[in-house]
Design a protein around this nucleic acid. Structure first.
Lengths: 127, 127
DNA sequence: CAGTATAATAACCATATGGTTATATAACCG
DNA sequence: CGGTTATATAACCATATGGTTATTATACTG
């Protein structure tokens, strides 16, 4: 599996694409079904070329695909990169689900007690 | 709930923070437990200030918190922003889980047949 | 107090990003 | 063919990003 490198680059592109509210809004719109560029542009106060650039970013991240229908170039959401992110997130789930943070702090505390019992604790005393 | 705006900004910051492989590697390391800045820096071929910048980005996105222990400033993973992303992702789950994409394409096809049966189909013929 | 270790900040640089306006393509319509 | 609609590209601009080296701040240590 030497495409681990590529996997990282795809994550880069996907996260970067998602780091913009306009692009996330476009995806939200596309989650309701395919739409043309001008339909996608309508809700926004920015120029059409700006939308085209956003779509290019989304397309290069693999988050949308484009068809062709007369002059229109209908865009469609592609879920795969989101699935990849979801999978990446799983490794961290325990950090927000359940008491992991508390547990982590507890381990720290124990480690801190090793040298001196009753030592001062600047952080994380709130368990 | 007028903090919808802020929620979007937090998503911006989180996604942007995650769009860098060095920062994701730092998070991966922190998922094993807290670590000092120099410990975090060790695996990378970049300067210490560069690491400090990355940590600042992560901290501003709320992805890490920092304590203090002598000269060291131990960093610890904070899962909350990842939970927020996970929640945001849920809206799109059906797009990669199950046949949604196929279904979408099918609807398109039906729509395309409307004008002319047997018309050429430039995209998405591979179902 | 002087020295050392850990980390942050400043100043700088190159490239990326998000926007603009103007222009070019592409495909339909009469 | 000429016009119109839909979209992309070019050229430009301001700001953000990720890196560097040099310097500063903080806290332990002898």
């Amino acid at each position: 599996m030497a495409n681990n490198v590529n996997a990282a680059q795809r994550l880069d592109a996907t996260f970067a694409a998602l780091a913009d509210p306009t692009r996330r809004a476009i995806l939200a719109r596309l989650s309701l079904g395919e739409a043309s560029v001008s339909e996608l542009a309508r809700p926004f106060a920015i120029s059409q070329p700006a939308i085209s650039k956003h779509l290019k970013v989304l397309e290069e991240a693999g988050l949308i695909s484009r068809g062709r229908e007369a002059q229109k170039r209908p865009c469609r959401l592609v879920g795969k990169p989101l699935a990849d992110i979801s999978e990446w997130l799983e490794a961290y789930r325990r950090h927000w689900e359940g008491n992991f943070q508390r547990l982590d702090a507890l381990l720290d505390e124990l480690k801190a007690q090793e040298p001196q019992a009753g030592a001062e604790r600047p952080e994380g005393g709130s368990l």
